[in-house]
Design a protein around this nucleic acid. Structure first.
Lengths: 139, 139
DNA sequence: GATACAATCTACAGCCACTAGAGGTTCAAG
DNA sequence: CTTGAACCTCTAGTGGCTGTAGATTGTATC
């Protein structure tokens, strides 16, 4: 028997036990069986599946996108282009987020650098936050 | 009378009406008065305050941080250093997010480039998502 | 003044992706 | 056989809003 309990699975995939139960609730992963007492039993392939989910989440994929990717990997005979499309869309989102964050960093840097270190009444931080026109960026 | 209704305020600050009511609920902003019928009435200074909140939110500050900044700007005689500290902490967070996103972009780019455009069974996207060891990054 | 209709009101449910807790049961080691 | 860690279900909470229902108010036009 290579069956593992939920705690072990959580450890392997660096997840919380609650998170696995949540994934089960929304239909992403199922234990292959239960003990007589009701404890969930998982196989090694469930560890892979869970790692897949976690890694995808870390990469910023949403649950529905992951569901799509899992469907694809469950049907290996289908075309790769769907998975490719999901990844490309994700890449696009990341590029956008990156640009926004860069503009943001610029603005924050300027705020911190220009802080007069005096009274709040002359504080650039407060002033800049009060008025969007101070932004160099276009967010 | 320069009093404005909530809808007008929302328009000025590019917010939703519901959001303003939510901010009132959590104590960030209050109408200076109400009509006999119960409609909220705001002054021009409320527009500034709301813009301050919205702009701060766009910059990634959390509600509690904004509450802190508002407290500061409500007490202009205090030192600027507290506002500076909040902004610095925020900048640090942004730098971290930026680095993570860059690593992520690298990984996604590689995924998309290596996609074999064949069957899912040979798809690099699925494969890479299945196994963290494929990552060049350190996320 | 009547009427129509937009804007506002309160109260509550829902979103995402978990996370935490209560209170009870089961499993495995000694 | 006992202990105590791990597990179970169920419910509620997080942050920061957003959406809906049904009632009321405000305002423009006739």
């Amino acid at each position: 028997m290579t069956a593992i309990a939920i705690g072990k699975l959580a450890e392997i995939a660096s997840t919380k036990v609650q998170t696995i139960r949540y994934y089960e609730e929304i239909g992403l992963i199922q234990p292959f069986s239960r003990t007589e007492g009701g404890h969930r039993l998982y196989g090694p392939e469930d560890a892979s599946r869970l790692k897949f989910i976690r890694h995808s989440r870390e990469l910023g994929f949403g649950i529905e996108e992951i569901r799509g990717l899992l469907d694809l990997s469950d049907h290996p005979e289908t075309s790769c282009s769907a998975a490719d499309a999901i990844a490309r869309a994700q890449l696009e989102q990341v590029e956008i987020r990156l640009e926004k964050l860069k503009a943001l960093r610029k603005e924050l840097k300027r705020m911190v650098e220009e802080c007069g270190h005096g009274r709040v009444s002359q504080c650039r931080v407060i002033e800049v936050l009060s008025d969007h026109r101070h932004c160099g960026g276009d967010h």
